[in-house]
């Protein structure tokens, strides 16, 4: 039971922070299928900086976690500028821009990873080894039955994510910026009429989504996969998009969706392991999160409604 909660949380929280990024972007009216590319590219920049700095300073790669996290956020944000420029300034189709960015991220990062490995380390390798970040347990709280598992074997990034998530929630729903951001996804003309630049708001929203996705990508790289390789493109970005649509473009229901994914995933793994089935049966249990989501969507998506101006290129003259 404990392992379900521990593993579930460590998967659900990075997914959640990526979905929040997606919510910011989509609430401002920019469709964002590029989350997958953002998280991969962010993780690449983070992993590359960690490996290079560790190589230069001789520190252990596991200790570079916070450095990597910082660079991953910068990297994800930098990469998201492409999506912002394409879909806001260049008026490109946002879905296509997103897909193209995913393709480009995969191509660029695999190419650069092999290049850097060959140039700096003289090794023919297509991955950066990172290891797993250390975990901690809060002693008193961990002894509470059931809930105690939440405080056992926690990755430090989980705390960071929760703090950022609360802050993101506050900004989106309680500040002037958040109000304007949500308004530019529903009725951009009204935002413009109030004397605020729709393009600027949307631009910053996309950058925020890149930043948060970079963070999420680095968390995956330092926990589940323990390395950076093209294996980071497991489709978690798309899963985050599914979660935010499932959560009806609102932060708290999206958290629910992410937790559902996380627990269904770790629960499926747990069942498969505890029944001592051959390894091919784990594949069958891996579909649990996706089947559960589809079934739940059948009951809950009647009232789902995307932001009204989502995916539309802002046209000042339009009434």
């Amino acid at each position: 039971m404990d392992t379900i909660i521990i593993d579930g949380l460590s998967f659900a929280l990075p997914l959640f922070i990526m979905a929040i990024g997606g919510i910011y972007s989509e609430k401002s009216g920019i469709t964002n299928l590029a989350l997958e590319g953002f998280q991969g590219f962010g993780a690449f920049i983070g992993a590359m900086s960690a490996v290079l700095i560790a190589n230069a300073s001789g520190a252990a790669i596991e200790d570079m976690f916070y450095v990597a996290l910082l660079f991953a956020m910068i990297g994800g944000m930098g990469f998201s500028i492409i999506h912002a420029v394409l879909s806001i300034k260049f008026k490109a189709n946002q879905v296509i821009s997103g897909v193209v960015i995913n393709i480009l991220a995969l191509a660029l990062t695999t190419f650069l990873t092999t290049q850097i490995n060959a140039l700096v380390f003289g090794a023919a390798s297509d991955k950066f080894r990172l290891g797993v970040s250390e975990r901690f347990t809060i002693d008193g709280l961990a002894n509470i039955p059931v809930i105690g598992a939440v405080f056992t074997n926690v990755y430090p990034f989980q705390v960071i994510i929760i703090v950022i998530a609360i802050f993101a929630w506050y900004v989106l729903y309680k500040t002037k910026f958040g109000l304007r951001l949500r308004a530019s996804g529903e009725n951009p003309q009204s935002v413009d009429a109030a004397g605020v630049s729709v393009s600027k708001i949307r631009f910053s929203a996309v950058l925020i989504s890149g930043l948060l996705s970079g963070l999420a990508g680095m968390c995956f790289a330092y926990s589940i996969s323990a390395q950076f390789s093209s294996g980071i493109y497991m489709g978690y970005g798309f899963l985050a998009i599914a979660a935010l649509i499932f959560g009806n473009w609102r932060i708290l229901p999206t958290l629910g969706a992410c937790l559902l994914f996380g627990f269904a995933k770790s629960g499926g793994m747990f069942i498969a392991q505890s029944m001592a089935l051959p390894s091919s049966f784990t594949d069958l249990f891996m579909i649990l999160p996706y089947v559960v989501t589809l079934l739940l969507l059948i009951f809950f998506s009647k009232s789902n409604r995307a932001p009204r101006a989502l995916g539309e290129i802002y046209d000042k003259g339009k009434r």
Partner: peptide
């Protein structure tokens, strides 16, 4: 059921892959 086709197709991708 008004389920967004992007979500359905992504879920079906995973399901068919694993099954």
């Amino acid at each position: 059921f008004n389920i967004h086709e992007v979500v359905t197709t992504i879920m079906l991708n995973y399901i068919s892959q694993y099954v």
